[in-house]
């Protein structure tokens, strides 16, 4: 049994979700190979080779793989996949984008967003916004799987795998990359942060979101998240959204500020180790999952919290 993990990377470094995906592969058991597909991504391949438990790194390096477009990365993975029992990718926007294409061309089901491995062919995955956990068994010869990264331990450093070049295929020519606008921030990555401070609709404006949530996040070296209501209202960028259809987070500490706690939001954060809720409505559903609830006006509580943390 050999597992192929598709690395998410920026051609230089390996993104954190890849380490958790390798962690999931270790739970399945067997040899683990990692594919690094990109352009000028030799450094990323070298980094992948140093992850514990990886026995081989496959490197597909070509101009048409620079932006890892689904149309171009899919044929590379499909070509390799036939030699593997499992193909895994993180359930990030990277993995979700191309892996179903791979599954369809292999004529196998994809098992999305697994949170536990029961055996080599049986996995647990959340459905209905995480309100139900389904245990599913695959009858396909190749198991194609995306991994909920917060549900698995990250693989450690300490490997020394060989890097082997593989065929990079051709440019399909049907899609081209125009550009990216990435949110610039020195804060930790939301999906992997140890502490997350999230703001909701009660912030009232983009200015107040920035003035109240961001300093608290910086004080705690935390990532910033938001509820759907806050994003819809334009208080925070789209990629801050935590929830069923946004990011799934499971930090050591999640601080929900002015968030009522719709089930779709809870789906994205209820596996956090410790949850703090600050809300002036003592009936808000967020208090039903919070370890520590503080009923009060966020505009006075948060500044007070800032000064208490400075003591």
């Amino acid at each position: 049994m050999t597992i192929l993990v598709i690395a998410e990377h920026d051609n230089t470094t390996i993104k954190s979700g890849t380490f958790n995906t390798i962690g999931a592969a270790q739970k399945i058991g067997g040899d683990i190979h990692v594919l690094v597909a990109g352009q000028g991504c030799g450094a990323a391949a070298e980094a992948a080779a140093k992850i514990a438990g990886v026995s081989k790194v496959l490197l597909a390096d070509a101009a048409h793989l620079a932006h890892q477009l689904a149309e171009n990365i899919t044929p590379v993975v499909v070509e390799l996949a036939r030699g593997y029992s499992h193909v895994l990718a993180p359930a990030t926007t990277f993995g979700k984008n191309f892996l179903p294409r791979v599954a369809a061309l292999l004529d196998v089901a994809q098992i999305s967003d697994i949170v536990a491995v029961e055996s080599a062919d049986t996995f647990v995955r959340p459905i209905y916004a995480g309100n139900v956990l389904a245990t599913v068994k695959s009858a396909d010869a190749i198991k194609v799987i995306t991994v909920r990264t917060t549900a698995f331990e990250a693989a450690a450093a300490g490997g020394s795998a060989a890097v082997e070049a593989v065929a990079a295929g051709a440019d399909t020519g049907t899609a081209s990359f125009i550009g990216q606008e990435l949110t610039k921030s020195d804060r930790p990555e939301l999906a992997a942060a140890k502490i997350v401070v999230s703001g909701g609709r009660a912030l009232g404006s983009a200015e107040q979101f920035k003035a109240v949530i961001e300093p608290l996040a910086d004080k705690l070296s935390a990532a910033v998240g938001a509820s759907r209501a806050a994003v819809d209202a334009g208080y925070a960028p789209n990629d801050y959204q935590v929830g069923q259809t946004g990011k799934i987070v499971a930090p050591q500490l999640y601080v929900a500020v002015g968030i009522s706690g719709a089930i779709q939001h809870l789906a994205g954060m209820k596996d956090s180790k410790v949850i703090v809720a600050i809300n002036k409505d003592e009936e808000a559903p967020i208090f039903q999952v919070a370890d520590y609830g503080l009923v009060g006006d966020l505009f006075s509580v948060v500044p007070e919290l800032m000064s208490e943390l400075s003591k």
Partner: peptide
């Protein structure tokens, strides 16, 4: 497209 770090634009035939 909405991606994890922000937005990405692609042109499709």
């Amino acid at each position: 497209r909405e991606i994890d770090g922000g937005l990405e634009t692609v042109a499709l035939k």
